[in-house]
Write a protein that binds this DNA or RNA. Structure first.
Length: 242
DNA sequence: GTGAATGAAAA
DNA sequence: TTTTCATTCAC
């Protein structure tokens, strides 16, 4: 408001109202220690407190906790949205679909695997924007698909109640019975469409998913009887249970 | 999500 | 050689 003519003593100013780092660390530990029970494996640290700690303070807290659980510990930011950090053995972060994400130059953070991709989570962690993922470009239709598409409605109207599967059977037979010229005509159409697609999307590339990751379209063949490879992404979740 | 046909492209 | 997927939409 108004500036008084108060003159602070020169050269003698000291931030008396600033608690020392040691004081912060020890009071932080005093508070966190209340979480410790004989079964505690992971400690939760409010973001505010975590940030008030410097490297030495964090080390101090970590050592104290280590002496309790007798295991190495790791700081991990909660990547699921809550402003808090976890401190515990890495194993405890890897259960129930949890993963530890590390981004070069930053502290690791923990998150539960969900619809959010690791890249998106990492971007959020860094407060950085990620280029919106480009929409998937559909495969160009082949000659038969074009043929079927063109006649689909005709067959429909001519056969009330007919199913799409039956339409496929009808048009599949019709296609095979079609003259070479006619089939060639559709082939050229599909080639034109394909060519146009490659001009619009020079980088386009057909990328079928691996033998079904999720939506396996049942194809049963002698060689399909093998057991499907299991995704063994071991992940963990901050859990004291063991 | 699956099925039912055909065929291109990839693994 | 085997698998996905592009079209369609009832189931």
């Amino acid at each position: 408001m108004n500036h008084q003519a108060t003159v602070p003593p020169l050269g003698t100013f000291q931030p008396q109202d600033q608690p020392s780092m040691e004081a912060i660390a020890s009071s932080a530990w005093a508070m966190l220690e209340t979480q410790v029970t004989p079964f505690t494996e992971v400690m939760t640290i409010p973001g505010e407190i975590f940030r008030a700690l410097d490297a030495g303070g964090k080390k101090f807290i970590a050592r104290n906790f280590m002496s309790y659980i007798g295991k190495n510990v790791l700081y991990c930011r909660d990547g699921t949205g809550t402003d808090r950090y976890f401190l515990g053995n890495p194993r405890n972060f890897l259960r129930g679909g949890g993963v530890i994400v590390t981004v070069k130059g930053t502290e690791p953070f923990w998150m539960i695997r969900s619809n959010t991709t690791i890249l998106e989570a990492a971007a959020a962690h860094l407060g950085v924007n990620v280029a919106p993922k480009e929409k998937k470009i559909p495969r160009p239709p082949n000659a038969y698909i074009l043929y079927r598409k063109e006649r689909h409605n005709l067959v429909r109207d001519a056969h009330p109640g007919i199913t799409n599967n039956e339409i496929s059977q009808v048009l599949g037979a019709a296609w095979n019975a079609e003259s070479r010229e006619v089939r060639q005509k559709y082939k050229e159409m599909s080639d034109k469409i394909k060519k146009a697609l490659y001009e619009q999307h020079p980088d386009y590339q057909y990328r079928p998913r691996k033998p079904s990751e999720k939506k396996r379209r049942g194809r049963r063949t002698a060689s399909t009887d093998e057991e499907i490879e299991h995704d063994s992404d071991e992940v963990a979740q901050p859990s004291s249970a063991d």
